[in-house]
Design a protein around this nucleic acid. Structure first.
Lengths: 99, 99
DNA sequence: CAAAGATATCGATAATTCTCGATATGTAAA
DNA sequence: TTTACATATCGAGAATTATCGATATCTTTG
C-alpha cells in the first residue's frame, strides 16, 4: 500500500478517536460476555460512544480496516473490530526510515 | 499541535515527495555554492524537480513548515527548506505511544 | 420463511483540499 | 531607485472528503 493512504486514514479526528478508544476497550465500552475483548468491539458500541451516525462509523471502520490499522471479525450478526498493533509498529518504522 | 494536523500534512503525494527529496539533497538537486546543503534547498529547485506550480510548491512548503516537519531559512532572496529530523522522530513516537 | 436486529452500502450535500494563474512582496544588483 | 528575480499570498474552480438519511444485506430467532 501507498503510504499516503495510511496518513489519509489518520487525517480525521473521529477516526483517531476510534483508534484511541480501541486501545483500551475495557475502559470505554460496556463489558462483553466473558469479559474478553479478544475479537474487539462491535460497531454499535463504537457508534454510541462516538456519537456520529451508524453509517458513518461503519464506513470509517471499514476504511481503517482496509489500511490494515484494525482488523474485523464477524461473529453472528456482529462485526468486532480491534487494533492491529503490528500495523502501528510498521507505520512508526516507515516514518523513521522511509519517509 | 493536534496530531491530525501532522497526518493531514502527510496525506498528499506531492508533499511526501518533497519530504523524500529533501532527505538526500545532493542526490536530487543541482549543487549549491560550496557544495553544502546545510540551510536546505531553495523553493525554485524543489519546484523544478516536482513540476507543479511555484505557488503550489510554496504553499506546500509553508504548510510543512507550520507542522514543524521542515524548517525555513531566508538567505537573500532565497528561502531554503530542510527536513527537521527531530519532528519525524517525535512523530514516530507519537504513533507508537499516543495513537 | 417472516420479523427483528446489526452492519454495510448508496446517493446527496456541505465542507475541505488541490492546484492553478495572477499578483503582491521582499531582496539584490544595475 | 528602477529592474529583475525569488518567494508568498490571493481568489477561483475542480476534486475529494465528511457526514447524513434511506435502504439493502446478513444473521439469528420465532
Amino acid at each position: 500500500m501507498n503510504h499516503v493512504e495510511f496518513f489519509k486514514a489518520l487525517s480525521n479526528k473521529t477516526r483517531l478517536q476510534i483508534l484511541n478508544l480501541l486501545k483500551e476497550p475495557e475502559k470505554h465500552f460496556p463489558p462483553q460476555e466473558k469479559g474478553a475483548y479478544d475479537a474487539g468491539v462491535c460497531v454499535g458500541h463504537i457508534q454510541q460512544k462516538v456519537g456520529l451516525t451508524q453509517s458513518t462509523i461503519s464506513e470509517y471502520l471499514s476504511l481503517l480496516q482496509r489500511t490494515g490499522l484494525i482488523t474485523a471479525t464477524r461473529v453472528g450478526q456482529w462485526t468486532y473490530y480491534k487494533r492491529n498493533e503490528e500495523a502501528f509498529q510498521k507505520l512508526a518504522e516507515i516514518i523513521q526510515k522511509e519517509l
